[in-house]
Design a protein around this nucleic acid. Structure first.
Lengths: 345, 345
DNA sequence: TTGTACGCGTTATCAA
DNA sequence: TTGATAACGCGTACAA
């Protein structure tokens, strides 16, 4: 046995510990560094040794330890993202586009849900930062002071998405929710409606859209604008209940209803139909989001279109540009929105 | 200046490099280990030094480096998860429950989309494994041989979710898709339907449900069972087109339609209504998933209920049990499903 | 209660 | 083209 020839200092002799670059090196008759090079830049290694290394890797099923790599190189190739909810299609679609774009460049995404509480977000930002991401995506522009400090201190690109502000932490990609609300009101007014109501889920940005809608519509309103606000997330059921509440408890006598999401709007449509009310003659409905079903419900939904994947893509581009040092790039990108007029209002 | 007293070996003297435990230690007049202890188990440090350490942390905004911690402790406190699609509510809801449960125990989730290709999944499994997760969640039971080897070699708990098999890689939480299809057929038969059609999205598991439905319904069928299969994901629009296709191109003369998801079923409902067809008299519809809107569409949708959050929770429990060494726990958990009879069929 | 010494598995820097 | 050697920032003995 040649066992005694093995250098005493390192590694287990047989199948003991985990397979490392050193293991591969021993199998291929080279040093650990050469294995590292073979993996990071094969052209710096001779074809012969490269072949031996590759075989050793195949035989052992070796998977490099990215933790150690990140520690040594000070680059984790990790980007973390925080969204209020993954089950909300709005954020899911955005993150999907973001991930695809970012992953094509060799980065992975660590995703967490923040819920509604800024304090929870602060805690999550800290744990995310502990993974030493190369960049971070945040939803919204409201963060605790400590969160801002930590983010600034991390010295990495940070994109705030889905809303807009003049003073972003770093980068910002979004649109003005207030303007969206006003645009919906303008549309409703010019369509001749003189009475309005709102149905909203629990969402700070939705609240701003609603407030802007109400403020803008008020001068044209012949009756008080009634608002139904739900505590939890949007659902078809809440949309139905929203209309029911407006009609049965608030004395809503018909007019246009501005909903905080297409899902709620769809619920309103269904309830109207179930009650034999004509849309848009008796009840007109404006949704928000232009989700893929919006054009295919009956009647097709008038809504505010926001290009969700575009937000994810723009956020990814902004981060990648930072990495490349490519151009100074404007810190804030306003992607806007568009009123899509269909038959429901 | 006492600058010369500083030990020459380590760290930058001022605001140079990143803040580490050593930095905090210097500020608090203790060693790096003490800082580590103060963070991991405060009771092992005297109140006085603890206070000094905490202050130093607050002042500097120090966030521990989890990468280094993981490398040293051989525990990453990371769990990675692979799902076919994040924008699909079925998987999103499952992951949400999984995350919440798992995060309560101090773990974070690294999530990726695999799409439909097993080869893509294999690549993703490798990159995920490179982060040295403490456990891994996979969707489905079909993986490439190399993927299985890597997973086995990693020596960590692995849960396969959303399907069931007798030979899981490690743990398995799901239900039988074939049985679900048969149960839907049995329901349709006993409800007296003698003609059937199917509308499906592109999903291997949906295909198995459909095949089982067809096989079971066939003996009772008075006409060929027509199938419309779409290439991409389910949508309301595809549901509408599915019924249109059945009616206009396949000579479907009415009967029950088994859809691969509630979303498609809802589309069928809308199209039927738009054509003035009565549901369930002319067209009966069975969905799949019992999503939250299913009970609130008109008419309410008969569907196959699968408790999505329960899958995530059970998967989390299975992994946590492995961590605790708690009980041997059955490797496979069948969570089943339930036919929910409503008005659409 | 606190500190020293070492190792975790990789990349970066030199030198050969 | 290849190899030593030293970080990277933290946990885990073990000792004081």
């Amino acid at each position: 046995m040649t066992d005694d020839q093995a250098p005493p200092p390192k590694a287990a002799p047989s199948g003991g510990g985990p397979v490392t670059m050193a293991t591969i090196g021993r199998l291929a008759g080279v040093s650990q560094v050469t294995v590292s090079r073979a993996l990071s830049d094969p052209s710096k290694v001779s074809p012969a040794t490269l072949a031996k290394i590759r075989e050793a890797i195949a035989v052992t099923g070796f998977v490099p330890n990215a933790l150690a790599g990140a520690l040594a190189s000070r680059r984790s190739r990790l980007i973390t993202a925080l969204v209020p909810s993954i089950t909300n299609i709005v954020y899911a679609a955005m993150i999907k586009a973001f991930s695809e774009r970012i992953r094509a460049h060799g980065y992975q995404i660590l995703l967490s849900e923040t819920g509604l509480d800024p304090a929870d977000e602060e805690m999550l930002i800290e744990t995310h930062l502990s993974r030493r991401p190369d960049a971070m995506l945040l939803t919204g522009i409201h963060h605790t002071p400590r969160a801002r400090r930590m983010l600034l201190g991390a010295g990495i690109p940070v994109v705030e998405v889905w809303d807009i502000t003049d003073s972003p932490i770093d980068l910002c990609v979004g649109f003005s929710h207030a303007e969206a609300g006003r645009a919906a009101a303008d549309y409703a007014i010019s369509a001749g409606y003189v009475r309005a109501g709102t149905v909203s889920a629990d969402d700070e940005r939705a609240a701003r859209r609603k407030a802007a809608f109400v403020a803008r519509f008020a001068p044209a309103a012949e009756a008080a604008i009634e608002a139904v606000d739900f505590d939890g997330p949007a659902s078809l059921e809440r949309g139905r209940r929203g209309l029911a509440e407006l009609l049965d408890a608030r004395g809503f006598a018909g007019g246009v209803i501005f909903c905080s999401s297409d899902l709620l709007a769809h619920g309103v449509l269904i309830e109207a139909r179930a009650r034999g009310l004509a849309v848009p003659a008796d009840i007109a409905v404006i949704g928000f989001g232009d989700q893929d079903f919006a054009a295919h419900v009956e009647p097709a939904l008038t809504t505010v279109r926001v290009d969700r994947p575009a937000f994810g893509q723009a956020a990814a581009e902004a981060i990648l540009a930072r990495f490349d040092g490519t151009g100074p790039q404007a810190p804030v990108t306003d992607l806007g929105f568009r009123i899509v007029a269909r038959r429901s209002a």
